[in-house]
């Protein structure tokens, strides 16, 4: 509240106009032959003074409101518990498919595929619900939200504002997904997002995806170097659907599957890495809760406080003054007859 800046300070040059009501206009007075024999009336003088004051206030506050007063954008250093978490969420079309029903092991394998298409919740919906709950619970963490399919799309930069994050998550549910999954590019962009941020607490990239990709050697090197440089831990919530391989298969022939290849690559990283394989909804919930437990370190961060506009207050004052002027006008005697 201490410092106020004006968006259009030249408008303040008009402020002397607010003194116009103090000039002697003739229109609003009734001519009277001789005032000296009438009684002096303190209440009337007060009413006239208030009338003029309201007129001046109305004009002055309109002019000030036009000048656009506001508290300038500022930065505040805050300390919190927790981590900086970059949620990297897959928006490819496969995420629109269903999760496996919780009793899938008991279903006859012949109809399992069909069951999996029609039963169970949508993967992206489940992921979104859980993430939104996760974010809502961890109010001390700072989250950033990035979607990817063919390319990355930063939805919400790092912030602690729950409302913005929830809106971002909701936005992820709009429309259908695209048909590509470019994990390499998305990861690189997510790592870059940490680049120019001071290290103020533990950093996590939470990759929410149902598929992997083969990464070329150059990309792999850049990802490994980036994670090491920015000291980022990588958590992979792997939403396993039907016909997808499990991550923990030891068989070397499964290298061909992109998910396994990605998992193997992540395992070679020097930075911390954890994979959570979620087949059914409950697995996913458990995985999210586990991530929550992992990171609870003090966190310093700078928060941008956006510019705050004071114009509505001035307009409110002006509206009130105008209303009072209207009342004054109604009370005013305008002719002798």
């Amino acid at each position: 509240m201490s410092n106020i800046e004006f968006a259009h300070s030249w408008v303040l040059l008009l402020l002397p106009l607010a003194l116009l009501p103090l000039l002697r206009g003739r229109k609003d007075t009734l001519a009277y032959s001789s005032l000296f024999w009438l009684p002096r009336d303190r209440a009337g003088q007060l009413a006239a003074a208030f009338g003029k004051a309201f007129a001046v206030t109305a004009m002055a506050s309109i002019i000030v409101a036009l000048a656009g007063p506001g508290r300038p954008e500022s930065q505040v250093l805050r300390t919190g518990q927790g981590a900086e978490i970059m949620v990297l969420m897959d928006r490819s079309r496969s995420m629109d498919l269903r999760m496996m029903p919780s009793d899938w092991r008991t279903i006859d394998p012949i109809i399992r595929t069909q069951q999996a298409w029609h039963r169970g919740p949508q993967k992206s919906k489940t992921a979104r619900d859980l993430l939104s709950q996760f974010i809502a619970e961890r109010s001390d963490d700072r989250f950033s939200l990035m979607f990817f399919s063919g390319g990355p799309l930063l939805a919400v930069p790092f912030t602690q504002r729950d409302v913005v994050l929830q809106a971002g998550i909701t936005a992820a549910g709009i429309g259908v997904g695209l048909n590509e999954t470019n994990v390499g590019r998305a990861l690189l962009t997510a790592i870059e997002a940490f680049d120019d941020r001071p290290y103020s607490g533990s950093r996590i990239i939470l990759l929410v995806s149902d598929g992997g990709a083969h990464l070329n050697a150059r990309t792999r090197n850049r990802i490994a170097a980036g994670l090491a440089r920015n000291r980022i831990a990588l958590y992979w919530l792997y939403l396993r659907s039907i016909n997808s391989p499990a991550l923990d298969i030891e068989d070397p022939r499964t290298e061909i599957a992109p998910e396994i290849a990605l998992h193997r690559f992540f395992q070679t990283l020097r930075t911390p890495y954890r994979a959570y394989q979620a087949e059914v909804e409950e697995d996913l919930a458990r995985a999210v809760a586990d991530v929550g437990k992992q990171q609870n370190l003090p966190l310093d961060y700078v928060e941008h406080i956006p510019r705050r506009d004071y114009a509505p207050y001035f307009l409110g004052v002006a509206a009130f003054s105008c209303f009072m002027l209207l009342v004054y006008r109604v009370l005013q005697l305008r002719s002798w007859t």
Binding site: R26, T29, Y32, L38, D41, A47, A48, Y328, L333
Partner: peptide
């Protein structure tokens, strides 16, 4: 009512809030 009056000769102004007590004072002034 509120009566903003202006003296036609001197140009001075006075605002009166017309109410019963002021009417009595007005009449007694006359």
């Amino acid at each position: 009512a509120i009566a903003p009056l202006e003296d036609v000769e001197s140009g001075s102004r006075r605002t009166l809030w017309l109410r019963p007590s002021l009417r009595a004072r007005w009449r007694s002034a006359v």
